[in-house]
Computed example of a mutant assay.
Amino acid sequence: MNATAAEAAQKALDWAEAAELGLKAVDKQRSAATRCEVARDSVTAAQHRASADGLEMYRVRAVGMATMWACVAGVLQSTAGGRS
């Protein structure tokens, strides 16, 4: 795969946005779990906690991918700049 610095930067941005959305989703699920715990609905609370945990794993992956693509973009940019 041949990617330009701009393409790599766009991928970094896309993954960063996914991480941001993941963080919001995790917060939403944890809040729902807390509301269920207050209402003494432990089964539904556990489901929300499990969902939050899965979303947290995805968010961590998205942050890693955003970081990786940002590094790739930087390397491609510096390499292209060196040839000019």
Rank of each mutant, 00 (worst) to 15 (best):
K28R: 07
D14A: 15
A18R: 15
M1S: 12
R61N: 02
A5L: 00
A73Q: 03
R40D: 08
T79K: 07
A46C: 07
V63R: 04
S31V: 06
G81V: 01
L76P: 09
C36K: 11
L21H: 11
A18F: 02
T79V: 06
A39I: 01
C71Y: 02
L23R: 11
V63L: 08
V38E: 09
A19W: 04
A12G: 07
T4M: 02
A6I: 04
A3T: 04
T79N: 05
A70K: 14
L21Y: 03
L76G: 04
A8S: 10
G54D: 11
D41W: 01
E7G: 01
G64T: 03
K24N: 06
A33S: 14
S78T: 09
L21N: 13
A19S: 12
V38S: 03
A5M: 01
G54M: 06
R30A: 08
A3N: 00
D27H: 05
A12K: 05
A12P: 05
A39K: 14
M1N: 05
V75D: 12
Q47M: 12
G64E: 10
R40K: 14
D14V: 08
M1I: 05
D14G: 05
E17N: 15
V38F: 05
A18M: 10
G64A: 02
L23N: 07
A80Y: 02
A32M: 14
D14K: 07
R59G: 02
L21V: 03
L21M: 09
A70D: 07
G81T: 07
D41S: 05
A70Q: 14
A80T: 08
M1Y: 08
S84M: 09
R59H: 04
D27C: 01
H48F: 15
M65Q: 13
R61W: 08
A66K: 01
A19I: 06
M1T: 06
K11R: 13
G74S: 12
S84T: 10
L21D: 12
T34A: 11
S84A: 08
G74F: 02
D14H: 00
S84W: 11
S78I: 07
M57L: 14
G54P: 00
D14S: 14
T34I: 10
C71W: 01
W15T: 00
L76Q: 12
D27L: 03
G82E: 03
R59F: 04
A9S: 13
T44R: 11
R35K: 15
W15L: 04
Q77D: 15
L23C: 00
A66S: 13
D27W: 00
V26I: 12
K28H: 11
A50V: 01
E7S: 09
S51I: 10
M57P: 00
L55M: 12
S84I: 05
T67Q: 12
A12V: 09
E56W: 03
W15Q: 08
W15G: 00
E37R: 12
M65H: 06
E20K: 14
R83V: 13
Q47E: 15
L55K: 08
V75T: 14
L55Y: 08
D41C: 03
A25S: 13
K28S: 11
G22H: 09
M1D: 11
G81L: 05
G74K: 07
A12N: 06
K11A: 15
E20Q: 07
E7Q: 15
Q77E: 15
M1V: 05
R35V: 13
A73T: 04
C71R: 13
A52I: 06
E56Q: 14
V75I: 15
E7D: 07
V63A: 05
R40G: 00
K11T: 07
A5G: 04
